[in-house]
Design a protein around this nucleic acid. Structure first.
Length: 254
DNA sequence: AAAATGATCAACCGCAAGACC
DNA sequence: CGGTCTTGCGGTTGATCATTT
């Protein structure tokens, strides 16, 4: 016997929520809290499934939601976190109070992915696309000469400097140099910007926690457990991406 | 002005994990 | 210990709005 559906779907309303539905759900949750999503629609007088109500609450109605576009700082943090955590959107969202996993996932898919692609960075691996292709080829090669190794080390060192914010080595007027470094760039090994906190980190953006007492939200205790991930542990600055972006823009104009 | 195309994001779906009995 | 239920997650879809042709 297969699993039963989360709810009886026949006759249930689907699609965009109306203002009236939002009011009903919000009024119910703020007055009663959530004990079982399955029972919420019935008790709140909604013709929706519990899953739909849960999603609506988490992604839209929660009082602690942060509205508006993500800041550049947040965007940079998302990129760094994605490099460490991959597509674990709920884990990433846990670092951004008031933001939802859905929001961050959408932002990644519609904006950051494109931005990285424009910079020839593979959004999956966070490595330059050409380097990814090259590394695949290299896997098939049995050995590498010491001379080549020495050259690669030098290239890596240069990127390390840049990642650390030391632009003194870079002469952006020489595109050849830039391309040479670009090819040798290995983001993952250099950047490693965020200490893995998966296991000891605060519970994810659990709706259970704050939804049981939505008026309180998660402002106090949960936020205290969160560890800011911005500058402290970050070796790689997004500034240098912007710098490259500006550089290419400048080059294309001339 | 209309059609085509692209961008955005809310909402849905199926699956997996954990809780419960 | 196994079956069922509930919740949460990540991938995907499709409606809507904006921009381009």
């Amino acid at each position: 016997m297969g699993r039963q559906p989360c709810c009886e779907k026949i006759g249930l309303k689907r699609g965009p929520w109306t203002l009236e539905e939002d009011h009903k759900l919000m009024f119910f949750i703020l007055n009663n809290g959530i004990h079982c999503w399955r029972t919420v629609p019935k008790l709140a007088g909604l013709i929706r499934c519990g899953k739909s109500c849960r999603l609506r609450w988490i992604n839209y109605l929660r009082p602690d939601l942060k509205r508006g576009a993500l800041s550049e700082l947040e965007e940079n943090q998302i990129i760094q976190l994605h490099a460490r955590l991959g597509n674990r959107w709920s884990k990433i969202a846990a670092h951004f109070p008031g933001r939802t996993d859905n929001e961050i996932k959408n932002y990644w898919n519609t904006r950051i992915k494109k931005r990285l692609s424009l910079l020839d960075i593979d959004p999956l691996t966070h490595k330059p696309i050409e380097a990814v292709i090259k590394s695949d080829v290299k896997k098939e090669e049995i050995s590498q000469t010491s001379e080549e190794q020495e050259k690669n080390n030098l290239e890596d060192k240069s990127w390390e400097k840049i990642a650390l914010g030391d632009f003194s080595l870079m002469d952006f007027r020489k595109q050849d140099d830039l391309e040479m470094l670009w090819k040798g760039f290995h983001l993952e090994s250099i950047a490693n910007p965020i200490v893995e906190r998966d296991d000891n980190f605060s519970p994810s953006f659990s709706t259970k926690d704050h939804s049981l007492n939505p008026s309180v939200g998660e402002t106090s205790s949960m936020q205290e457990q969160r560890v800011p991930v911005d500058s402290a542990n970050s070796i790689l600055s997004w500034d240098y991406f912007n710098c490259l972006e500006d550089f290419f823009f400048f080059q294309n104009r001339h």
